[in-house]
Computed example of a mutant assay.
Amino acid sequence: MITVLLVDDQPLIRLGFRMVLGSASDLELVGEAENGAVAVRLVRELDPDVVLMDIRMPVMDGIEATREITASAPRSKVLILTTFDLDEYAFAALNAGASGLLLKDADPTELINAVRTISRGDAVIAPRMTRRLLDTFADRMPTPARRVPVPDNLTRLTPREREVLIEVAAGLSNSEIAERLTVAETTVKTHLGRILSKLGLRDRVQVVVFAYQNGMIEGT
């Protein structure tokens, strides 16, 4: 069973998601929270696999709650639920450690599949959607004049791993990267796993954020 914690300040929205989650035999809703502070406490108590997190809430918003959860309970993956495709807080949520974004009006099947994907440690944002999101927030990224030095752990990557990192950040899927680099898709997955381990990142979403913040993408 995949255990889920639902976080939203609106009871009717929680009711709707509760019904959707209840329709999947492999998902178990173990708790609900009306704000981020309660969510942080319940994550410590319940140790859920996935946290469905709203952004705008009283007491503590979803961004701060995500930051605390990913720092103190990294096993619990956070899936941000947002009203708008490119919500102004979306990038901040990803930067805080969320593993993906999902619109609140997603169909039930999409929500269920997203929870399953997040529980496996993958991201639920399509690569091209990730690129579009980051392009929208490009003005918040470091410019060449104020860019911080590249972290030392980046030097641990092999030339091929750097190539894969850049392709991921450019919005390509694993199969597209495999075709471009003329390697097997399983090889790309292996390289991506090593990149995550060496850079201390959670998933491909954070790989993209890392690459943009460190000026590894042309034009950033």
Rank of each mutant, 00 (worst) to 15 (best):
T3C: 13
L5G: 04
D8W: 01
D9Y: 03
Q10Y: 15
P11K: 01
I13S: 05
R18A: 09
M19S: 13
V20H: 09
G22Q: 11
E28G: 08
E28Y: 10
E28R: 10
L29R: 08
E32F: 09
E34L: 03
N35H: 14
G36Q: 04
A39P: 12
A39V: 10
R41H: 13
R44P: 00
E45H: 11
L46W: 06
P48D: 15
D49I: 04
V50I: 11
V50P: 01
V51N: 13
L52K: 06
M53I: 04
R56F: 12
M57K: 02
M57N: 01
V59A: 00
V59I: 06
D61F: 06
E64T: 05
R67E: 08
I69R: 11
A71Q: 14
A71N: 10
P74I: 05
R75I: 13
R75C: 12
S76T: 12
L79C: 07
L79D: 02
I80M: 15
I80Y: 10
I80E: 07
L81E: 03
T82K: 02
F84D: 13
D85C: 04
L86P: 02
D87F: 00
E88R: 14
A90C: 03
A92G: 06
N95W: 05
G97T: 01
G97N: 00
A98M: 13
A106G: 10
A106Q: 02
I112W: 04
T117L: 12
G121S: 08
D122G: 00
A123H: 07
A126S: 00
A126I: 01
P127R: 05
R128M: 09
M129C: 11
M129Q: 13
T136S: 08
T136I: 13
R140S: 14
M141P: 09
R147P: 09
V148K: 15
T155P: 12
R156F: 09
L157A: 03
L157G: 04
T158R: 07
R160A: 12
I166K: 13
E167A: 04
V168Y: 15
A169Q: 05
A170W: 00
G171T: 07
S173F: 00
S173E: 06
S175I: 13
E176P: 03
E179V: 15
R180G: 08
E185S: 12
V188M: 11
T190Y: 11
H191M: 05
L196G: 08
K198F: 07
L201M: 04
Q206H: 14
V208N: 05
F210T: 06
F210E: 03
A211W: 00
Y212H: 15
Y212E: 15
Q213K: 14
N214H: 15
N214D: 08
E218A: 13
